[in-house]
Amino acid sequence: MAVPSAAVQPRPSILSRSLSSLAESRNALGFGFMLPAAALLLVFLTYPLGLGVWLGFTDARIGRPGIFIGLENYEYLWSDAVFWLSVFNTLLYTISASILKFALGLWLALILNQNLPFKSFFRAIVLLPWVVPTVLSAIAFWWIYDAQFSILSWALQQMGLIDHRINFLGDPTNARASVIAANVWRGIPFVAITLLAGLQTIPQSLYEAATLDGASRWQLFRYVTLPLLTPIIAITMTFSVLFTFTDFQLIYVLTRGGPVNATHLMATLSFQRGISGGQLGEGAAIAVAMIPFLLAAILFSYFGLQRRKWQQGGGD
């Protein structure tokens, strides 16, 4: 690691020394290094966030800057049954998909944590649904859920479990279950692989000690695995909940909110009213209405993480 050329540098003059000390000063240099990222994020993330809140208070349409109308958009949404339906759908979608993703993902992680032949191979292929573009896998699900030629209906009919084709996306209840299933399919790998990473950090000796103390398999899971896995579960599920709550692509491909708005999420309703319908102000108001839910999820997880510091004996 020798840098011999540095040794023969001439003694710097006062001016160049003060210049270089400025360049070496942490704050000036830090500012310079942060500049590209900060500029891009301030212009294309922070500013639009503020603009979105502002648009929610205007009656802007596509091609016409709006004027301030106060809470009118929100008052309208408050009395709009479709909006409340979309809130209900979003909560239903998020909660049921997250629970399923967590349960199945944890199960898969526990399986992959066993000694398996071709372990890394399984780990690799299990991640595939997460790598492939959501829209493209959603199109595959669209075909799987086709009303006439659904392979699922056909297979179930061949097995004699059903006697007529299932209308996967045409019936409100079925459509909700179908989009949740597709979302779970895509979300399991992420949960499984991150939880697997958490599982691999748990020392085997803890299990051995617990087994010597006569712990059953359930007790091993309940009193060793679960407590040590809690922090990573908190992070993983926060991400999972946030991304599920703001999901747009899957619904847009599979149902576009139908049938009779039964699968409209807040994000798709915002797109439909704001972009397709041209009512930018109203669309922005729907998007802004998602923020309290997101903040609640983040705060919930933040306090979950606080507890973990305390659990590990760290300072408050």
């Binding site: 994020l41 294309f44 993330l45 500013y47 639009p48 966030l49 603009l51 979105g52 648009l55 802007a60 946030l242 991304f243 703001t246 999901d247 747009f248 807040m266 994000a267 915002s270 797109f271 704001g274 972009i275 930018l280 669309g283 922005a284 998007a287 802004v288 998602m290 923020i291 997101l294 983040i298």
Partner: peptide, 16 residues
């Protein structure tokens, strides 16, 4: 910033 989802940014961004 990573937690800000595109679903709440696309309308103001489209205006910009």
């Amino acid at each position: 910033a990573y937690l800000v989802p595109p679903s709440i940014l696309f309308i103001p961004l489209s205006v910009m």
